[in-house]
């Protein structure tokens, strides 16, 4: 589904990713862990082309990502959805408008673009948006401005927008890092439901080890731009965690 082959990336002189290889299979749900600055965000942003690798290849659904071609990137972006730590919603729009904006990638021709810009959406898209809002439990908030919603509700709107794309892969970059533990748990639960019921592959960056153990089967740990561990969540023992999260200075002296 998503395959990284020996990808490397430097920002300036600083190596951020050094030869990362990783394959995520169809319908899989994996957790990506590792200390801050280890390159997790950089890695998943290579999938939809917001970061261009210096070397190596990224494959999405058996197609190699061509970073040079705008149209190729666009079609990859339609298949992959992204959810962020700070939700990244458009504050002054309503919930429904935010969700509908996830369908924009399907309005390609000039006519469709203009119609969508004037607020016309296909009837089946509006119905789909309402279905999705029902699925994430926010149908009664459809016509409210998103800046009135709570953090957990905002993240559900963002997930609804992602689902509106009808993606094959969902990338989530620390989706619960700015939520309280209980709300965060609900969001991860929702992601798992989406993975199981809709068969969408999920790659989720997060720092909550207990939730990783509870909800994920596979975990990939990154440290200093390299894959340190790739295996079953149940195999994550204290020794491994120590190694993954050990302090920088210790790593130098070791």
């Amino acid at each position: 589904m998503v395959k990284f082959v020996e990808v490397s990336k430097n920002f300036g002189r600083k190596p951020v990713l050094s030869g990362v290889s990783l394959e995520v299979r169809e319908g899989e749900m994996i957790a990506l862990i590792g200390p801050s600055g280890s390159g997790k965000t950089t890695l998943i942003r290579m999938v939809n082309g917001f970061v261009v690798p210096d070397s190596g290849e990224v494959w999405v659904m058996n197609r190699k990502v061509e970073y040079r071609s705008r149209s190729a990137l666009k079609s990859i972006r339609k298949e992959t959805a992204m959810v962020y730590q700070l939700f990244n919603l458009v504050d002054r729009l309503t919930t429904l408008q935010n969700v509908l904006s996830g369908a924009l990638g399907r309005y390609n021709s000039l006519m469709e673009t203009l119609l969508s810009c004037m607020g016309f959406f296909k009837r089946e898209d509006v119905e789909l948006a309402m279905d999705i809002l029902r699925y994430v439990g926010l149908e009664e908030k459809a016509y409210e401005r998103v800046d009135r919603l709570s953090g957990g509700q905002k993240q559900r709107v963002a997930i609804a927008r992602a689902l509106m794309q009808q993606p094959r892969v969902l990338l989530a970059d620390e989706p619960i890092a700015s939520l309280d533990p209980k709300t965060g748990k609900k969001i991860i639960n929702l992601l798992r439901r989406i993975n199981q019921e809709k068969g969408i592959a999920v790659i989720c960056v997060l720092h909550h080890i207990d939730m990783v153990r509870e909800y994920f089967e596979r975990v990939v740990a990154i440290r200093e731009g390299r894959v340190l561990f790739d295996g079953r969540a149940t195999d994550l023992d204290e020794g491994l965690l120590e190694e993954i999260y050990q302090l920088e200075e210790e790593a130098c002296t070791a």
Binding site: R77, K78, A81, L86, L89, V90, S101, S116
Partner: peptide
């Protein structure tokens, strides 16, 4: 810029990005 990138990540065109992420702001 955050919503801008989010809208771009769904595979939209420049015009749609302007309309749905810039204008509302």
């Amino acid at each position: 810029r955050k919503p801008l990138e989010a809208i771009e990540a769904t595979g939209t065109s420049f015009l749609q990005k302007l309309r749905f992420a810039v204008l509302p702001q």
